[in-house]
Design a binder for these strands. Structure first.
Lengths: 238, 238
DNA sequence: TGCCACAATTTGATATATCGTATTTGCAAT
DNA sequence: ATTGCAAATACGATATATCAAATTGTGGCA
């Protein structure tokens, strides 16, 4: 998937090749195209995407800096596995930051947003019924960030995005293994209700409850798959 | 200050040229070597440091990704000015994260740590007396992170570091302008007391109080220097 | 068959070259 | 002096080259 060839124009940072590659990798991570422990190869990614290694390297290094990817003592780049302790940290921070975001967003959310959330939630459920977990994750992400974007808190938002990226790879491999009924909880519906009412505190609480569910599920999953020997998956971007 | 020449050895990520440059730039930012609005020139930095542009570019892009540096619509890189809204966000997050860090650290802090903090605080006061604000900031940073490191919460720590970097440039230019008496408050002494007592909640409270002071000072400073005469930023940087 | 030495290949880190735009500069016209 | 504008220069983005360590592959020998 070639994006653009060398130097037709000098793009502004927002649509530089590096930025495009970063978004592509982010989406791939969020939808589970990379598995925990999987090794990342800069040259291979560059070839798949159709750019030189420079913008890919940029993006990968940024992900490493954010803890989304990791390097070992021999400089090999790979997708880290989530440790129990990290989950605890990440969710503690998410409860606070996403709580703040939801609370701040409450004032600015419109009927259009409610509409969008309801539609997205239907798509979420449909995808879940079809066991299309890639789509499930995409809908879940769209749902939450639609709210968070309305908060106008860019510092919060950026941090939360990076925390989502950390969880993405594990999350994707979680769904097929967990029992279905766990996913039937009503927390998104509850969130939509509170968005309708525009009650900041209640919306915050609804988000936090949803996060509690997620954390519980993630924990349950990790207990279930305690250190399974893992084959090396080779995955394409996208 | 040349670091190392081309390829004597392949270093592990922790001491790659890029990492060294990143730390060097971080320290420079934290101690106020760059002023808000100042333009960043990759080639010039590379020459000053004595490496090629590649590792410098890596570091600078990382700082951009973290919001520590910014680019304008024409891809010029510069040190952003702190806006009121950002300060509010940053300090809200810092109170929570640094509060968590302090609370978690309380259990692990030793007599050695207390010792270090007391010494550092003396250096801090000495530097303040001499109006050596670069050293003041260095001591302040050492003081806080000595505590935070003990918490064993790497996700928290990394985020807090990036938030400090954002404030560094403004903070440095703040001290010479603020009245001295503001800096005479006892919050570091209070922190040391709580470290001695190893009381998690009290230590958290002490840290939050210190942050409240910082935020107040920063606010006061920004009000004081409201929109300085908008001199055209010249391309020549130092 | 099993294992080890060694060469070929792969990989990330760094340096350098090139591209297209942005900015600065030099100089002429007023 | 001031202004207009074109050539020169600077700059970030991207591509490519090179290096040394790491990994992989292979052949020979026990």
């Amino acid at each position: 998937m070639a994006v653009r060839h060398q130097g037709y124009e000098t793009p502004t940072r927002g649509d530089s090749l590096a930025e495009q590659v970063y978004r592509q990798l982010s989406n791939a991570l969020l939808s589970g195209a990379f598995a925990p422990r999987e090794r990342i190869n800069i040259r291979r990614l560059a070839e798949e995407i159709g750019v030189s290694v420079t913008p890919v390297r940029e993006s990968v290094l940024r992900l490493i800096a954010d803890g989304v990817l990791q390097t070992n003592e021999k400089n090999a780049i790979f997708v880290p596995e989530l440790a129990e302790a990290e989950i605890q940290e990440i969710f503690a921070i998410r409860r606070f930051l996403e709580g703040d975001l939801a609370e701040a967003a409450a004032r600015h959310l419109t009927a259009e947003d409610t509409e969008f959330l309801a539609t997205t939630q239907n798509e979420f459920l449909a995808a879940m019924a079809q066991e299309d977990y890639r789509e499930v994750l995409r809908c879940n992400s769209l749902f939450h960030f639609r709210i968070y974007e309305r908060a106008d808190l860019p510092v919060h938002l950026r941090i939360v995005e990076s925390l989502w990226l950390r969880i993405g790879p594990t999350l994707h491999h979680m769904y097929p293994i967990l029992q279905r009924d766990r996913t039937g909880h009503q927390s998104h519906e509850n969130i939509i209700d509170q968005v309708r009412k525009r009650d900041p505190q209640a919306l915050r609480a609804a988000i936090v409850t949803d996060l509690d569910f997620s954390e519980g599920a993630l924990r349950q999953y990790l207990e279930q798959v305690v250190q399974q020997p893992r084959r090396r998956p080779v995955s394409k971007v996208r």
